[in-house]
Write a protein that binds this DNA or RNA. Structure first.
Lengths: 153, 153
DNA sequence: TATTGTTATACTCTATAACTATA
DNA sequence: TATAGTTATAGAGTATAACAATA
């Protein structure tokens, strides 16, 4: 709190105005995380966005495009583009929902599931790198704090 | 940890694949935070980006554009555009650094400092809204965990 | 009437490369 | 040679609006 405390150590002299600003820290941490994720996933032709869609399709919960948009906090029109791309590459397919013919359910193909397994390895590698300075229990703590912000209900 | 724990409560049935993924939680939390910040700051003609530049210029540390780029994790060319915009509006000025004539130091004008005071109020309002579910001590804990990620040194 | 998916469009953000002037 | 700032450009992400099919 006082003038010459080690807040400077890690962040340099500019930290006075924004160094404790949660929104700024969130933005900067996310920038690192997103960049590392995109680099790691680029090796198998995915990006963070397409990986997240593939992950949700791959877990067997048969999400509609609307479900994906809500959960990923994307506009439905962005989901159209992401699913188009994955479908063109033979990784996912749209299935009609018999209960509601407006709805497209997104499922993975065998190739999609196989690629997802590779992608998970890369995603973990990136995460390990970005969160290297946090212990397992600190990571759990961070996850539960972030869940309160990310899913306000 | 076991199968039917309340991880579903706040995030719905899609949470299996990504609900504990730190990178995803960071992205989603940041999306909320950024959106709320932009909405709150729009009332006074700023965005999160321009606010962060103004904040660093306003605290008297006389940052160079390079300092701003490093701290905000922006490309130097983006800083040019942000400073151009704020300068056009009479909120900041570029000053030559006598010690190194390549360097532009960014300082606030009186109007810039006045607007920054208003902007801080809006930024706090947005932050209060986004982090409403976290107690003061949880917010501090979140800040220090995020600092380890955002400033890896 | 409301919702799902779709198309279109404009704007912001991100990432590179090349250039200039200084060091 | 290297660094600070600048310009230019392309690609990714964000935000809206409007529409068809279906509920």
């Amino acid at each position: 709190m006082s003038a010459e405390q080690p807040a400077v150590t890690r962040k340099g002299r500019l930290s006075a105005a924004l160094g404790d600003d949660l929104s700024f820290l969130l933005a900067r941490a996310n920038a690192y995380s997103l960049a590392a994720g995109n680099v790691a996933l680029a090796t198998i032709g995915l990006r963070a966005r397409s990986y997240s869609v593939l992950a949700l399709a791959a877990d067997g919960s048969r999400p509609s495009q609307r479900d994906l948009a809500d959960f990923l906090r994307l506009d439905p029109s962005q989901v159209v583009a992401l699913v188009d791309d994955l479908q063109t590459r033979g990784l996912v397919a749209r299935e009609a929902d018999p209960a509601d013919r407006r709805t497209n359910v997104v499922v993975t193909t065998a190739a999609g599931r196989a690629l997802y397994e590779q992608a998970r390895v890369q995603a973990r590698r990136a995460e390990e790198q970005v969160f290297a300075r946090l212990s397992p229990s600190e990571r759990e703590r961070l996850a539960s704090l972030l869940q309160l912000v990310a899913f306000p209900d």
